[in-house]
Each structure stands twice: as structure tokens, then as C-alpha cells.
Design a protein around this nucleic acid. Structure first.
Lengths: 150, 150
DNA sequence: TATCAATGCATCGATGTCTATGTAATCTCC
DNA sequence: GGAGATTACATAGACATCGATGCATTGATA
């Protein structure tokens, strides 16, 4: 029975949203755990592979985490030989990130795992629902973009 | 221009979802921070106020966190005088939780803050979008409910 | 060019979170 | 009624995360 939620309040939506978000996080951690990696680590490596060379702050923005968090995670990934840091010639404050050969190989595997996990989770939705959901999500974060102009 | 996302993939939706979730978390932390409390702590106190007496595991389920996490957070809230633990007479393994007078007062304040934050965030959506969003969120977590039957 | 502001990154301390495990109480069932 | 399974909670260890802050570099300006 769809649409039994006529008078739904914002707070109820917030509750539902945050619960769903946790389910999503848990699901991805499980699936990616089968690939021997956590969700945050895989997201970073995959994102670097996709848009290298990339500066640290850009990367943090792209995956939606704080710059300090990205710094710590990247540090571990460099130690593990998946990423490379390189000081930018243009601006020696900047760090350019690239994947190593090993990182690139793993990124490919993890991307597949990530996509499969996403399909498992969002598969029950119709294409129209998917599209609607993305619209709604973008509406919600559109605020953020303008708020950043403050 | 709505619906410009015809061929959106599950992975893209997952990305968008997780970014939105982080925006939501940040927004609530900011707003509730103005009330001197974190989101998880306020959610626990408010939930206990709403459905006391409540067992720890029930509470964890209601707010969508792991039982161990709830145990730790509740411990702090009891130390701070907002919640009371009481061993159940029926089942001496169980802990029944209630708010103290102070906890009840704060819960009221925090509920207002929570609702206001939710309205700020979800206000841009039409009532129909809100309703649709809840439908979609419930579809996504419906899996979980059945998976729990394993 | 010397100074002061702004920027990019690293680090710190605190918090929330998970899974895994331990302990006590309860339940099952022979 | 007692043994073993189950359940409820607490605790431990690891990780991700944040905001705040420090340090080095760059940019702007007088």
C-alpha cells in the first residue's frame, strides 16, 4: 500500500532518513568488507583513481568528509602503498594524490563491489523512484551549496 | 528543471545519498549544538521520554544504533543525570530506562530544536515529495526487516 | 620588499560507531 | 530440576569522524 503517509512531519522524515542512512552504511561496510576494505578507504582510493591527480581538499570535498579526516585516511593509504602523495610544483602547500599500480587494481575491484552493493540496496526501487530520489537528494543539498557562499 | 536524471545508476544514487546523509548529520549537530547537546545524545533522551519505560535493546533498535553503542551512550546520560536505569523485576537481565525530571525538561527543548532543524532541512520539499521520500526510505529498509528474520 | 591575511595540509582530543566478546539471567526440555 | 542454549546488557578494541589549532606557503598591499 503505497502513499499511506499523507501528513508526514519533517522530524519523522529526518528519523527515517537517518535510520536508512545507517542501514546503507552497514550494508556497504559488509559488502566491501568481503573485499577486505572499509567503505571510507575504498571511496577515497576509487575517487583518486577516477580523478587523479587530485588535491587533498578537493578529494575531501568530493567524498564529503572533512579535510582533516581525509588527511588521516590518506596517510594510512599511503603507508599501505595504495596512494602516492606528491607536493605540487605550482603550490608547495598542496599535495597531489595519485593511485599506485596496486591501488589502481584494488580500486577496480572495489568499484565493482561498491556498484554491486548499491544495486542490491537500490535495486528494489523503480527507475522512476531512483530518479525522483536523486532529485530530492539534490534539492536537500542545494541549500548547502548556497550556504557555502556565506 | 526536475527529472534530468533518466539513466541514474545505483552507485550514483548511493553517492548522493551518503553525501546528503552527512549534510543532514552536520546540520543536526549544529542546530542541537546550540542547545548544548549532540544529536545521538538528544535522540536517545527524546526517545526514552517518548516511550518510557523502555529496555535498552528496544531503544537501540528505535534509534537505529547498535546495542553496545546505546549502552555506552546511556551510561554517560545516566552519569549526567538525564536518564535512570532500573533493573526490570520481570527479567533481571533487562534494564528499564526512564528520563529524570531534568532529562524530561531537556527532552522537550531538544525535541523543539530537532523539529526545527528537520523543518529547515526538509522544508524545501513539497508535502508530496516528503511523502514520496518516506515511501522510498521505507522500501529501502524493508529489506532489513526481512533480513532480520534470517 | 616587508608585513599581514589567506590558504593547504597535518595533528590533536573528543565523540560516536561498529563488531566481538564476556557475564549474568532466563528458558527449554529431557 | 539440571545442562545447554538463548537472551540482555556491558565492555573492549578498532575505526571514522569532527572541529580546532598549528605550521608552512602563498597572495595582497602598502
Amino acid at each position: 500500500m503505497p502513499h499511506a503517509n499523507k501528513g508526514v512531519t519533517a522530524a519523522q522524515v529526518a528519523d527515517e532518513f537517518s535510520r536508512t542512512a545507517k542501514v546503507l552504511v552497514r550494508h556497504f561496510n559488509e559488502r566491501l568488507g568481503e573485499h577486505g576494505v572499509s567503505t571510507p578507504r575504498s571511496r577515497l582510493v576509487v575517487e583518486v583513481a577516477r580523478s587523479q591527480p587530485v588535491r587533498l581538499t578537493e578529494l575531501a570535498l568530493a567524498v564529503g568528509i572533512a579535510q582533516g579526516t581525509a588527511s588521516t585516511l590518506v596517510d594510512a593509504l599511503v603507508r599501505d602503498g595504495l596512494l602516492e602523495r606528491q607536493t605540487s610544483a605550482d603550490d608547495r602547500r598542496s599535495v597531489l594524490l595519485r593511485v599506485t599500480a596496486q591501488g589502481a587494481a584494488l580500486a577496480q575491484d572495489w568499484t565493482a563491489g561498491y556498484e554491486r552493493a548499491a544495486e542490491e540496496l537500490f535495486g528494489p526501487l523503480t527507475p522512476e523512484q531512483l530518479s525522483t530520489l536523486v532529485d530530492i537528494l539534490r534539492t536537500l543539498t542545494a541549500d548547502e551549496a548556497s550556504a557555502a557562499d556565506d
